[in-house]
Design a protein around this nucleic acid. Structure first.
Lengths: 244, 244
DNA sequence: TCGCTCGTTGATTTGAGAATCAGCGAACGG
DNA sequence: CCGTTCGCTGATTCTCAAATCAACGAGCGA
């Protein structure tokens, strides 16, 4: 149940507010039950709004997912571009891209989870035009690699497009370990993971260098009650048990 | 429309055959329309079998997906293990794991596509107990890295679990470029991609070495009518337009 | 204050498709 | 050759959630 504005506001602002509330609720619900697994009713309830109102602001369920995707991905993309404009060197750029992704997760794990799990690999015919957006980032990264090769900062025989894919594959899977609860979501752990992803990508597991500062973080046995899917017997009975 | 046995067979064999036919059809249909996006009727039609028969062999839609997953993943896992038992050195092992994955894709792109797109990232509550299986592979790989670190073949400060995740992230995204049609599915391209994935993971993009022999594998141009999912515009209208 | 506009409501309709089931007929034993 | 079994069929039923819509009332201008 998200915040419910009570104070008076001009029509327009109040509406925009509502829209955002629904969008936030959608992210929340999608991240909990998945796009296919949730009902509009869930989103409405989460937003503290009538069922029908969701359809007032969004044409249909797909447009809702599309909007969630759009805002999330747009934010990520612009941060990446901003980061790139600040860094000139090849390695620094790679590091900053990785950093942006991990920072986004630290700030809004729900949102990133939806991006990764729902939109990232939308099942085949998947709703949104993820393909295009995804492709555009790959292309952005591809150009970075091509440039780096031209400058001799990267092995010349590698395919830059594949390199771009591998970079995002590493980032994504790195984040997935957190999304799935394989790793504890704690700032220092995230920090080290981010460094390892960049370092592995740049130098490989054989020659990866320790970060100069080397905080050597406390391993500290993870408490976390075993992740839910660990026991994994469940199985969505297609129809049964959808309520929380 | 899969092969229809006409020659007589003993009851048991004929039944097993049927079951396999349905399973194959399911892979085919899932890879084309996704698990959520297809109907049991599609699978039945593809298998050239009556609607009800699917339910004779599989309890429900979920069990069908589960079986598809099981057989596919099981095959992959056992190949990985076999490959590992043949190779002793750390680098050789990594290379062989990557190779097994790419080889699997070359042999059965449809099947791998389903594994990657449908089961790999099953939307949150996802049907099958993917979590467990997935986790088990990560753990298997984790032990390889831990061992390699003990032997000094891998940088000691890296988290082996994260390293394992990154390895599969790279493999997966590498394959995804083919699944999504970003790269042309041709033997020689696959071959080079496989090498780049392993090489990048081991030495990083900065120091990756060209393959010594540079075999330039027999391209042997695959005929294959352009993959259907290449055009990818679609958009699941929730209800509308699901027929082929 | 009146009454119009339009944001908001939630019960109702609609439709897709999962799962069922009564019965048919091929295969097989006697 | 007959009877029984059970693999197989596909029309029918049932479920569930998306999308609709008629009506309500808060806010606003006159």
């Amino acid at each position: 149940m998200a915040t419910r504005r009570v104070t008076k506001l001009p029509r327009n602002e109040r509406e925009a507010e509502r829209r955002k509330t629904i969008l936030r609720a959608a992210v929340e619900v999608f991240s909990r039950k998945g796009f296919q697994g949730c009902r509009i009713a869930d989103v409405a309830r989460e937003a503290g709004v009538a069922y029908g109102l969701v359809y007032h602001y969004f044409k249909d369920k797909d447009e809702l997912l599309g909007s969630v995707f759009e805002s999330g991905w747009q934010g990520f993309l612009s941060r990446v571009q901003a980061a790139l404009s600040h860094e000139a060197g090849f390695e620094a750029r790679i590091r900053s891209v990785v950093h942006v992704a991990f920072e986004a997760y630290r700030r809004d794990p729900r949102g990133v989870k939806v991006l990764i799990l729902e939109v990232g690999r939308s099942p085949s015919g998947g709703a949104v035009n993820r393909g295009g957006a995804f492709t555009s980032v790959i292309e952005l990264a591809t150009s970075i690699f091509a440039e780096a090769q031209a400058r001799g900062e990267m092995a010349a025989h590698l395919d830059p497009k594949l390199a771009a894919a591998l970079l995002f594959g590493s980032i994504e899977m790195g984040l997935t370990t957190f999304v799935m609860g394989l790793m504890e979501r704690r700032d220092d752990v995230l920090q080290r993971a981010s460094e390892q992803v960049a370092e592995t990508f740049l130098r490989g597991v054989v020659h990866a260098r320790p970060v100069e500062g080397a905080p050597v973080v406390t391993p500290e046995a993870i408490p976390s009650e075993a992740a839910p899917w660990t026991s994994a017997k469940s199985g969505t009975k297609s129809r049964a048990a959808r309520r929380d």
